[in-house]
Simulated scan of single mutants.
Amino acid sequence: MAVLKIDNVSKTFGETRVLEDINIAMAEGEFLILVGPSGCGKSTLLNMIAGLETISSGTITLDDTPVNDRSPRERDIAMVFQFYALYPNMNVRKNIEFGLKMRGVDKGERAKTVERVAKMLQIENLLDRKPAQLSGGQRQRVAIGRALARDPALFLFDEPLSNLDAKLRVEMRTEIKQLHQRLKTAMVYVTHDQIEAMTLGDRIAVMNEGRVQQLGTPHEIYDNPANRYVAGFIGSPAMNFIECEFANGSVRLSSPEASLDLALPEATADKLAKHGQSKVVMGVRPEHLAPADGDEANALACPIEIVEPTGPDTYLLTHINDIEVTARCTPSVAPDVGTTMPLTFDTERAVFFDCQSDERIA
């Protein structure tokens, strides 16, 4: 049974359409990520699920019940906000139990719930402190604890880690994933951070300009992007996009040092031939463009312009077809700046896009 169904949902503000024909079905216990740049409509969609925004058209269903006309209080959901939204005059204990008190839960049951949630989040020693006495990470745990106290059918997270420093973001990201694994409750999580999306989600909805560009598992989104936007948004460093000419089963590539007719797999070549356009965009991720190990046929000699060590990996910047591209290698084989290195392409992992529409061809 789908705990959440979004059917043909659209949203307009005046004459501006901010969401268009959103369709998502979410299974029980699933962790769904809504990811995209600022202004893509992801937070608006989350607010419509919560009942904080009205729906212009379409239907949102929770546990097989349409909730378009239900208030936030009538939906079995709990929301964790970007800015914590804690009551500054209340201590942690009262913040966590506030929603339960408003729903008439008796004092003894409230106390048990607070203790259970505090133990789960390891904040038992903070229960008598007020928000001003807490760090950013501690405040976020309290905000999550308040949501947990409700024991809802669905959790909503609106960029909950964006105000934390980088180290704490990583720690809290791990805690949220562990929390989901323990609770096995459905969660919808909004972020603009593609690393958060890839590491947290069972499925990811990549959004742009009010539309879902692709919905799939992290593996599907990364390895088989539906279009150039998805391919470029997911992945760090980003996928390389190289405009090139296709003919006779290969694409023509040139560096300042050499040229290469890169032979493509038969299935890829057949799709490009059926497409009927000689100009295409080849997408290749940095890890699929690497130093040649021996005399590979698909190697192109490239002058290395910049070397970027990151610890476990080193990134090499060069130009192919007058486009700056990034290759990845291990530190042990990293060349010096200014030297020429043969780079080989993993053509089985390369993808191709139409030059005009940016849609996937092969």
Rank of each mutant, 00 (worst) to 15 (best):
V3D: 08
I6F: 06
V9G: 03
V9K: 08
T12K: 14
G14H: 03
L19I: 08
I22N: 06
N23K: 01
A25F: 15
G29C: 07
F31C: 08
G39V: 13
G41C: 05
T44I: 09
L45K: 03
M48E: 06
I49F: 10
A50V: 03
G51S: 08
L52Q: 06
I55T: 04
T65D: 07
T65L: 09
R70Q: 12
D76M: 12
D76Q: 10
V80Y: 02
P88D: 05
K94P: 11
K101S: 12
R103V: 09
R103G: 09
R103A: 11
V105K: 00
D106C: 04
K107M: 09
G108K: 10
R110V: 02
R110I: 03
A111E: 15
E115W: 08
E115F: 12
R116G: 06
K119G: 15
I123G: 03
E124G: 05
N125H: 14
P131A: 06
P131G: 08
A132W: 03
S135F: 05
G137I: 15
G137P: 14
Q138Y: 08
R141F: 06
V142W: 01
A153H: 01
F155D: 07
E159R: 04
N163F: 11
L164I: 13
D165F: 11
D165H: 12
T174C: 11
H180C: 01
H180I: 04
L183Y: 11
T191I: 15
D193I: 03
Q194N: 01
T199C: 09
V206N: 07
V206F: 09
V206D: 09
R211S: 08
R211I: 12
L215K: 05
G216Y: 10
I221V: 12
Y222C: 00
D223Q: 11
P225V: 10
V230P: 02
G232E: 06
A238L: 14
M239C: 08
I242S: 07
I242K: 09
E245C: 08
E257Q: 14
L260M: 02
D261F: 13
D261I: 11
L262I: 10
E266R: 13
A267D: 14
L272Y: 10
A273E: 11
S278N: 12
S278L: 06
R285D: 09
E287N: 06
E287G: 04
G294Q: 03
D295P: 00
C302L: 13
C302H: 14
I304M: 04
P309I: 10
G311E: 13
G311T: 14
N321R: 02
E324H: 04
C329I: 10
S332V: 14
V333E: 06
T340K: 04
L343P: 00
R349H: 10
D354H: 11
Q356K: 15
E359H: 11
